[in-house]
Computed example of a mutant assay.
Amino acid sequence: MTATDPLLVVEDVRTVFHTARGDVRAVDGVSLTLAPGEILGLVGESGSGKSVLGRTVMGLVASGPITTVSGRVRIGGQDVHALHPRHRRRLWGPEVAMVFQDPMTSLNPVKRVGTHLTETLRRHLRCSRAEAADRAVDLLRQVGIPEPARRARQYPHELSGGMRQRVVIAAALACDPRLLIADEPTTALDVTVQQQILDLLASLVRDRTMAMILVSHDLGAVVGRTDRIQVMYAGRTVESGATRDVFGAAQHPYTDALLGSIPRLSDPPHTVLRSIEGSPPDMARPPSGCRFAPRCPRATDRCIDDLPELVLGADDRLVACHHPVHESSGAGHGR
């Protein structure tokens, strides 16, 4: 790698689960790049393929009897899926780490908090027992846990949800990874703690010059904390661009609908919240054309028949839509 090379390159990645009902294309031809120090927001409804993409990038999902993974994922120039599983595990920690959305299933309930960190440090950095213990306490301090030495001796159930999530973040950061994947890290937390955790992640990434993929179904969580946004729907990318451009003028109807569903403090009391009509498609039997067409007010017969490709438009925006929102109001509204 040179200083100008992207840290992460994902090329036409497809993750297919073979089920009794048919093949489920959870990720269907997604590409992206990420530079050191850059934060990408990966957003979309539940079931859009965000988490599966994150695990595929990590190498946690690989081809097997019930799964087929194709395309290329390169981290620091290394093809993740071409590596032997033993060599791939060596990437986890020093090169790439993940913050999972549920800390109670990420942490072993019968191990002390400190042990979750010292095991990683001793395995990857070859620290002595004493060095690992000291560094574990320091990591807990860095993520804002009070009395870190005492907390390191406690078990996960003795901590609050916000504290447990901070422990998971500390474990992910233990080996100074170059890439951090945060998979909806605030799902189970209250609003105040969500804000703290998201701000903490953003500040840690900036301080350490890491790259981060922030996976979220909430566009409000990524605004102000990400450099770029990539919107996914039914396993595919539908829009991608700089955060300020996407929030300023969404071009894909799905992105526009997501933005419209965000509650606003300026709305008067008892304002009816906007929602996106319909449901995401059955991924075992997806529509032949645009997968958002059955829910889209701008859809035409072309949308129902032809799957749109990602096209580079103004302000370096990628959009997969036959009738983007910026078109004149008279275009593309009838079926």
Rank of each mutant, 00 (worst) to 15 (best):
L125S: 10
Q101E: 08
A132M: 11
T105N: 09
N108I: 00
R123G: 01
P103E: 10
D102W: 10
Q101M: 11
C127R: 15
M98L: 13
H116C: 11
G114E: 07
R112V: 03
L121E: 04
S128P: 09
E131H: 10
T120C: 05
H124W: 08
H116F: 15
R129G: 05
R123W: 02
F100E: 07
A132L: 09
P103K: 13
K111R: 09
S106L: 02
K111F: 13
T115M: 15
Q101I: 05
T118C: 11
C127Q: 15
L117Q: 08
V110R: 11
N108T: 00
S128E: 06
R129K: 12
K111C: 03
S128W: 07
T118G: 13
T120K: 04
R126W: 01
G114D: 06
L125H: 07
R123L: 06
V99E: 04
C127P: 05
R129Y: 01
L125T: 00
V110E: 05
V110Q: 01
L117C: 04
T120S: 09
C127I: 00
E131T: 12
F100V: 08
H116Q: 08
R129W: 10
S106I: 03
S128F: 06
T120D: 00
Q101K: 12
H116M: 13
M98T: 08
R126K: 14
R122F: 02
A130Y: 07
P109E: 04
L125E: 12
N108E: 00
H116E: 15
H124P: 05
R112Q: 14
R122P: 01
M104V: 12
T118R: 11
S106M: 00
N108H: 07
T120F: 04
P103D: 10
L125N: 02
T115I: 04
T115W: 13
F100G: 05
V113M: 14
R122D: 04
H116I: 03
H124D: 03
C127N: 06
V110C: 06
